[in-house]
Write a protein that binds this DNA or RNA. Sequence first.
DNA 1: CTCCCGATAT
DNA 2: ATATCAGGAG
Length: 218
Amino acid sequence: MLNKKQIRFCLDEIGKMFPDAECELTHSNPFELVIAVLLSAQCTDALVNKVTKDLFQKYKTPEDYLAVPLEELQHDIRSIGLYRNKAKNIQKLCTVLLEEYSGEVPRSKDELVKLAGVGRKTANVVASVAFGEPAIAVDTHVERVSKRLGICRWKDSVIEVEETLMKKVPKDEWSVTHHRLIFFGRYHCKAKNPNCPECPLLEVCREGQKRMKKRESI
DNA sequence: CTCCCGATAT
DNA sequence: ATATCAGGAG
C-alpha cells in the first residue's frame, strides 16, 4: 500500500500527464448527461457519443422518450449493447423524472441513485459533472488503476475503493482526480497492455515493477 | 452471484 | 477468438 507521500506523487505525475482530463461524454445539459452515463455502462465513450449524436436530436425531453414505443427506443440505442435493459430504464427514469421532479434531474446523489439504471457510479458522475458536487465515481478504470498502484487493496469492493480515495485525496481535488484517473486508465494504464516502460509512476508501482520483471525474463 | 449485449482492440 | 468497454438490477 502506498503512503501519503507516494499517493501525492502519483496524483501530481498523473496531473502532468493529463492536465485537461474531463468528462468525454458529449452532453449539453444534466438530462442528456444522465442518459449518456446510463448508456455508457460496459461500453466505450466513443460509441456512446456516436449514438447520442442522433439520439439527442430526436429526443430532447423526458416526454420525448415516453412518446415512442419501447421497441423504437431499443432500436435507436441498439448498437450500444445491453440495449433492452437500458431502453427500459430510460423510460422508467423519464416517468419518475416527470412524476416526482417536474421533469428536472435531481441534484443530490440520494435522489439520483433511486432512478432506474442509475447506480452509485452514475450518480457520482452526474453530481460531479452536472452540478459541481465533489465526488469520486469509481468505474472500471478508477478501480483498476487504484488497485495496480496500491492506493487501495486488490480485494476491495468498489465502495471500499471510493471510500479509500475520498479519505486519501483532498476533497477539493476529488473531481479532477476522478477524471485524471480515468484518463490514466483509459490511455496509459490500460487493462490489456499497460505502458509500464514509459510510466512515470513505475518507481512506486509494485504491479508495474512486477510486469517489468516478467518482460525481462522473456 | 448471474444476466444483459454490440462494437472494437488485440 | 477473446477481452474489454465510464455498470446496474434481480
